[in-house]
């Protein structure tokens, strides 16, 4: 195949996909700045000719927007901290403490299966249980439920990292007289700190974007997360697009920010547990 043709084809594929990826994001972006009058243009303007910040201002001054952000932060942070903590411990345990090959696989599979208890199936019993205990519309309740996907993910990813971590280093330390705990906390953990950080960010992002649990289990402004809260306040009887677009941009921004932060680790974070299994 001629070199030129090959190059053309390659870039054709890449650019097509680039446009496909960026078009919705761009469209959302410009919609958030368009007034109703501009939105009514047919065909639509490709760039906001009369841009307005009204919808952003409206969202921020909307009495509850700050509270929604606060709720999202608390819940996502809570889940990320607890999940990473527990996941690291459990991951290490599965990686190092169960020596027989089979029980290792079984433990791994059980953790995978725990991930396959998706929100849709679990939300009904969770709703009834939380309602009965009185944990509906609370951060604590929502975090507890989020743990059900946070812990398996963190465990599995950390287990993958621990598997890769050469045990020779630990064994050397062990021979030198350190207990298992000491090696864990003084040697293994510090080296794997970046990986733990990655897991932390991932669980944070996952909780931030979570929709179904937050939709059902929280209904008041003091507990609703950002993704839900805004859509709930758009009434049936108004022109909703600009407001929703602005809300979408606002809720995606922190995620984007973290995304850029951990760009380098992204590959490892998403695929580590997957590939090494």
């Amino acid at each position: 195949m001629s070199k030129i043709i090959k190059k053309v084809l390659i870039y054709l594929v890449l650019i097509t996909y680039l446009i496909f990826t960026l078009l919705p994001l761009y469209w959302n972006f410009i919609t958030s700045f368009k007034t109703a009058v501009e939105l009514s243009n047919i065909p639509p303007t490709l760039f906001p000719l009369n841009p307005t910040l009204y919808f952003y201002i409206d969202l921020f001054y909307m009495r509850h927007f700050m509270e929604l952000i606060r709720n999202s932060v608390i819940v996502s942070l809570g889940n990320a901290i607890l999940s990473t903590l527990i996941g690291t411990i459990l991951g290490y345990g599965i990686s190092r403490m169960i020596t027989s090959e089979q029980s290792k696989s079984i433990a791994t599979i059980l953790v995978i299966l725990a991930r396959m208890f998706p929100p849709l199936i679990m939300v009904i019993p969770y709703y009834i249980i939380l309602n009965a205990i009185g944990l509906i519309n609370t951060w604590f309740g929502l975090i507890t439920v989020y743990l059900t996907f946070g812990i398996p993910f963190a465990t599995w990813t950390m287990k993958g990292f621990f598997d890769e971590f050469p045990s020779q280093i630990e064994e050397a330390a062990f021979i030198d007289g350190c207990s298992k705990f000491d090696t864990f906390f003084r040697i293994t953990l510090p080296i794997l700190l970046p990986s733990i950080f990655v897991v932390f960010i991932f669980t944070f992002l996952y909780s931030w974007n979570e929709f179904l649990y937050a939709l059902i289990l929280t209904t008041t402004y003091d507990s609703q997360t950002l993704t839900i809260g805004v859509f709930a306040t758009v009434s049936k009887w108004e022109i909703a697009w600009s407001k929703i677009a602005a809300a979408g941009i606002i809720s995606a921004t922190p995620v984007l920010f973290f995304f850029i932060l951990i760009r380098k680790y992204l590959a490892r974070g998403i695929t580590f547990g997957v590939i090494k299994g």
Binding site: G78, N137, F140, I143, S223
Partner: peptide, 8 residues
């Protein structure tokens, strides 16, 4: 967490 669950 539990204590902060009083409705706002």
């Amino acid at each position: 967490g539990y204590l902060s669950r009083a409705p706002a």
